[in-house]
Amino acid sequence: MLQEDEKYKALRDQLRTLPRVKAKHDFEDRLMRRIREAESPSVKLSHTVTQPVIKHQPAKKSWLESLFRPSFVPALGLTVVLLVAVVVYFGYYSKLNKSDTSNTQQFVSSTNQGDLIIYVKKDGEDISSNYPKEYSAVDPVDTRSGEYAPAPTETSTDYFAKPDPSRITNTPELKPDRVSEEQKIEMQRSVDMDKDKGVDVKGERKSDDVIMKKESKGLFKTETKSEMKKETSEPKKKVSDEKKNIFIDEESPNVNQEQKANDKVEDNLSNEDETGNRISRATKKDSTRNKSESEADDKETIQQK
């Protein structure tokens, strides 16, 4: 420390030689004035201590006045508004929502024409009054007419659900659109005419019968896969037989024998078909005769009358 002081000795001497600045002459007077000013509040307090202190007691306010102070007005207003909003929400709005969801039920029904009709059922309302007239002329309540099944009163909107078996109407099976009796008679007449003329109608009739049989099978029988296979396989056999007929080998007697046996079987079958056809024709003729006879009898009865 001393070394450092000696290092700056010249500077230190210079600073020490600086003239000393003294306070002003009236320093003490001004100081006393300021001290008195600082002491004055405490002095006043000491004088007032002797006098009885009368505390200012504010008048007691009622709790209503304290509650409805001007500073509390915005807060009170806000709370009132919030309370009203809560009451309205829980008292009315929720009810409205419930009524919207529970009372109204949507029903969807489809007409025969393929149109989709959506109608709403409300509580206490008869759905029949809202029932679309274009659906059916029959009143769904009316059960007198058994021929027309009443339209479903309600249809679920679940389109993926399985259909209700009770709703499915049993439509009578349609008879196949076959050749009418008159056409059959005409056909029979033409065959008879051809027979009389000497025209061989065997092949044509055979093919017609086969077609008729096939049609009848297809229409009235539910074909299983096995039957389908059989049907598909039968013509193949025939084709193979024909091929066998085409490629006859003279050197193989067994094959000829088998061919001959097959031919015999076919002839028998054809004979049976012919007999069957004759029987059917006879029955048909009888039926036509009976019809003509009955018509003649009717005419006679009318004439007699």
């Binding site: 600086l18 600045v21 003294k22 320093f27």
Partner: peptide
């Protein structure tokens, strides 16, 4: 009073301020 006045004057550099500070 004089010691403080001298010190404060050298530190502050203004005599009026120095007088106020010493007071």
């Amino acid at each position: 009073k004089d010691r403080l006045t001298n010190y404060i004057y050298r530190y502050v550099g203004n005599y009026d301020d120095c007088d106020d500070i010493v007071q």
